[in-house]
Design a protein around this nucleic acid. Structure first.
Lengths: 296, 296
DNA sequence: ATGGACGTGTGAGATTTCCTGACAGGTCGT
DNA sequence: ACGACCTGTCAGGAAATCTCACACGTCCAT
């Protein structure tokens, strides 16, 4: 099925010249010189083996063949212009739906939304809370920001943004904060530890990595989400363990203390999207998130 | 009204790649390498700010945006292909309608039609007899081959092919041919001269130019057309006066004698067409006719 | 009628675009 | 695991395209 088209650039030039009935005005519209227009029309005439314009006084006039070609070309090019404009518009204005947990949303994304709007003006972000990553597909989502361990589902394209780093945190208002601030890590075994039902392995895994006796850990209040646990920690109700970015602002403001170093876990902050997506904003967003997560 | 289109070459490349779902096959169709296809698709993606293809195994798969663009592009390009093919076909197969007098047709065009078909294979010639040039417009004609004097109508584009050259001719079968063959021009005043009703001035004008006494010319048989007059001359019925190309074959074959030199008149062989035509075959045909008329 | 404004056609040279040809890397089937 | 197959990418060169300048014809005002 080999059918050939004339030079499309020549055709576009011709369409403008035919519509404006002037090589000079067509040149202005196409941001070229009139010589280029004249030449392109010559090319098209040679390809079709006919004359498209005749001279009418000091201007141009279409021949019969020229009129026919103009009708065909203007219709097709208008269709193309319209379709491309529509597509462009949709691409530019379509919001990017990012899913993340409520805790990440409230404690990390929301404080950074204003800066993001400034630094990524092209991306209209819609945020959607996803507490549990869907098994397959991402209904209504363009991407998800997750804390997760490999392996990743094969259907995802995963951008690893930063390793997860966690540490115990507590409030200056904590009854034993003065003592804890200078205490050895081992002192934590005496504290009732705030924890979440969604990640029961957080404390034990951390303790193992820090050579703290896992068996002697005492669990205190449990929360459904990290967000509530951290609110409890800020309120001085106990020692929590949390990813650094979610508590960095509180530490900087003095609402939380973290006397022990943050340590990497096996999990990472990842931005994941369906493999078939191909949305270029994923890379843009991933790059920006990576920068933000790397800040002190 | 400035609306911009993406690169049309990139769009054509994309359309082929989307239709064939393969950069390699698109490259084969477009007679380029797959690298060129890949690059053009990249250009288009950059212009639209989106991804059009994703990788599907070792092949390509369209994204949602790609599918939309394919629908738009294939429809528009198909329309363009169809319109251009139709136009091309009409241009190539449209016969060129040439008008000329019956005399020129019978004594000059018809003997040359075979050679013309060989030397101008692209031109399908239709011949139409026009005894009197129409005042304005050329109904049903693409051009006319005429013997005519300036000035030309302003609405015509006129290609002057050759000056008209005429001379008296007679047959070897003419009763006084032996005497005429060696006679002085002045001897013609004694002959009853064959002439046409359509150009009664032919003999007087020629005689004036040759310093022969016009008043003493004797007119013999009159014919409606040059063609019949020349047939009469060939039959030995008298002395006719004729344009060189129309009798050259007869002279070469010995059917007519022309002992006196051919002289230019004020008329010319011209190919004329409407000024608005712009048909490139006019120039082709004019060139060929000019060559043929210049032959000995 | 004459000069100037306007519009188009054409040429040589410069510039941009485009293609090629080779290589790298990933996927599929055996 | 290997080869066949497909795509992405790069540097360099070929080709298309543009620009600039000038020539020429038309229209208008003086």
């Amino acid at each position: 099925m080999i059918r050939d088209l004339p030079s499309l650039n020549a055709l576009r030039t011709f369409e403008a010249a035919a519509r404006l009935e002037s090589a000079t005005r067509a040149a202005a519209e196409l941001n070229v010189t009139h010589g280029a227009v004249s030449r392109q029309i010559r090319v098209l005439e040679a390809e079709l083996g006919t004359t498209l314009f005749t001279h009418e006084g000091r201007g141009l006039a279409l021949t019969a063949a020229g009129r026919r070609l103009r009708d065909v070309a203007s219709s097709a090019l208008d269709q193309l212009r319209d379709g491309c404009a529509r597509l462009r518009h949709d691409i530019e204005t379509a919001p990017f739906v990012l899913g993340c947990s409520g805790s990440v949303l409230a404690r990390w994304m929301i404080p950074r939304l204003e800066r993001m709007g400034r630094e990524l003006p092209g991306v209209k972000l819609n945020l959607s809370v996803i507490e549990h990553a869907p098994a397959n597909g991402m209904p209504g989502l363009d991407a998800m920001l997750l804390l997760a361990e490999p392996p990743w589902p094969a259907a995802w394209q995963v951008h690893v943004l930063a390793p997860e780093r966690i540490a115990p945190v507590f409030s200056p208002r904590h009854p034993r904060s003065a003592a804890l601030r200078k205490a050895n890590l081992a002192a934590l075994v005496k504290e009732p530890l705030l924890h979440t039902t969604s990640r029961p392995q957080a404390w034990p895994a951390w303790a193992r990595a820090q050579r703290v006796a896992v068996a002697r850990l005492q669990f205190g209040q449990a929360f459904e989400h990290l967000y509530y646990m951290l609110e409890a920690a800020v309120a001085g109700l106990g020692v929590a363990i949390a990813p650094e970015p979610l508590v960095a602002d509180d530490i900087a403001a003095g609402r939380l203390l973290a006397p022990w170093a943050f340590r990497a876990t096996r999990a990472s902050w990842v931005l994941c999207a369906p493999k078939s997506s191909g949305d270029p904003r994923i890379a843009t967003l991933g790059h920006w998130l990576q920068q933000q997560l790397a800040l002190p």
